[in-house]
Design a protein around this nucleic acid. Structure first.
Lengths: 204, 204, 204, 204
DNA sequence: CATGAATGAGGATTCATTCAT
DNA sequence: CATGAATGAATCCTCATTCAT
């Protein structure tokens, strides 16, 4: 490994450190409380140094959001496909997603509720043809297709269906995150009911 | 009109001015960029005067949110009930709601996507028993009840159903607002599909 | 009573109201928290009106201090003279004073620890010949004179003695007021010891 | 001298500058008129920078007070002990103290007449057992003990005596500081008389 | 490469005071 | 006589960013 390479690597490591610190603050304290100084303190470097690795604060936030989005993607993709009961796989994947996000609600907010354009570009999901770009949506598409082919689901536009499955779940999730004081039991009831309606909405 | 009355009226006008300014900033620049100073500049008064009309910033934000929420309520309540086809009334009401919110997207964000406690207290919707407090949910409940009684909808918990109808729509709406560059046509396709799945999810 | 007179009287009443309100705030919340607005709210008038009765805030504070000082004076003068044991009267008077001030510590601070010139002019006590002006010091002087004449006290400058009796007591008192967390018992021990030393300092 | 050291030194210098500026304002204008902005203007820096060197305003005030308190301590401790005549050492120490404080009257006020909790914690003197904590009181205690042992002073509680010696002197001093227009001669007469009474109050 | 001092602008509030009504 | 709206300056403090070292 040449010197240039090693330097590049080191640079990557610090970048990672900064992003991790930012992520942690975002997760623990929310976007309003994220500041360059806090990041610097956390990584035990000076505030100035951060500007060697990132143009400005916005770039950090965007990068964190990207990382967060990767996580989201994975949660949806990791579910093993139950070929006979694709609706079960859909439900499982989305439940996975809900659980994961409820564990890091501030990150969810940062990624999916912020209005920073750079983030939204990375995260958008409603465009026609998006299933070719986003693996998460693609996964849902595959499962829907399966359901249709098996004759379990109604005939319908597959991508649109995947999108609606996702936006609906997203809606429930964002309210679950914003509304405090909801009992665990009520949460579960809501989630269960959500899937009852959605899955029933797919089935013939 | 007496002097006292006129003064009262003038006071109301300035209050309104402040709220309008706040609203405009909220709509154009989002919550992060709302400041007392900005409001003052907009209405061409000194910052201090704002505290004549409002206790503090939170009260302003809350008031704006309340106004926004009133709008939301109305959109859901104004739909005439089609007794024979409650699912049509549900869809109409929620479509109304989507349209209205798409016209004032930042206000929607301010009210329904902000994490300000004072606001959330006024708009929370997931609590068990909420249908007794919120007219909007109550309206949905009535329509669902109707559908069940008519034998059109499956037997199910009415309040939970109303809540999920709302959160799902909320999810689609919030993504429609955050994702730029979606064609009008795609928007309509998504909205149509959304209701196809949801309504189908209710029906026997 | 003529109209002019009655108006004068009314004016006095409001002045009194303002001073009482200011006094109450001073006593309860201290000088730092005294504001024109708070006074206005308390007397249920508008802030503006206060400037009809007083030049500015300083004048109010000064007036309150004067009132407070009157109180202080009285506490020292009201003790019945024990001709045979003037040292007992001295102690009683000063103990009276301590007790009174401990009940209204903020007022004590406002009057005796503030550095507002106008107040200090009314309250000074160290000048040579002050015993002719200040009844309180005069009272102490009389008691000291009595002690000297009876042959109980050492021969000494009477006015200086009265002044030192007062400043010493003032010193104890001001520390008692500023230092929190002193037990009642310790307070009493200090006060007792204070008089033991002082009185012993007078006696032959 | 290494770079780090020099930087450290420079930092100390600015800290000192800030404290000096604060001290000066305190001395000239009193606590009510001390503000971060004023300090910044005086040292010709921006207000923000002050927060590099101090957590907040309170820390500045506390630091100034500490400095002042150090002075006080020294004045009381520097007097050589006259074993045969401890009363002379007591008087000398306290006279020292008076002189020193009269030279920096507003600093005295800042430290000993302010009601800022953080300061009071550092200078309180009336608590039972304080002689173990405060060297100044401890010094007085030693001298009093000496006097009692030599049979010159009456038998009495040593700590209480030290405390009263201090509070009495504090009382005289604070009045000397607050009352303007007292002739130098009268000042001296008062101080002399003060010690005559006090010392006589100790002696058998 | 890294520091950390420094700035300047901005954040929410509070206040004494003035003045048209 | 009395109001109360309005100001302007002040309060403490925080922040993203820059830049000499």
């Amino acid at each position: 490994m040449g010197i240039a390479e090693r330097k590049q690597l080191e640079k990557e490591i610090i970048r990672k450190k900064i992003l991790d610190a930012a992520s942690e603050i975002l997760i623990k304290e929310g976007y309003e409380n994220l500041s360059i100084r806090k990041i610097a303190t956390k990584i035990e470097y000076s505030p100035g140094i951060i500007y060697h690795y990132f143009e400005n604060k916005a770039e950090i936030v965007t990068s964190v959001a990207e990382e967060g989005y990767e996580k989201i993607l994975k949660s949806l993709g990791q579910v093993p496909v139950d070929v006979e009961n694709p609706e079960k796989s859909i439900e499982k994947g989305l439940r996975n997603y809900i659980e994961l996000m409820l564990e890091a609600p501030q990150q969810f907010r940062a990624v999916l509720m912020s209005d920073i354009e750079a983030i939204q570009e990375k995260v958008n999901v409603l465009k026609e043809g998006i299933s070719k770009e986003r693996k998460s949506i693609q996964g849902l598409c595959n499962l829907v297709t399966l359901g249709v082919e098996k004759g379990k689901f109604r005939e319908m536009d597959v991508e649109l269906t995947a999108q609606i499955l996702w936006t609906s779940t997203h809606g429930l999730l964002s309210r679950l995150i914003l509304e405090k004081n909801i009992s665990e039991q009520q949460k579960q009831r809501l989630i269960n009911h959500h899937f009852q309606i959605l899955i029933n909405g797919l089935i013939k």
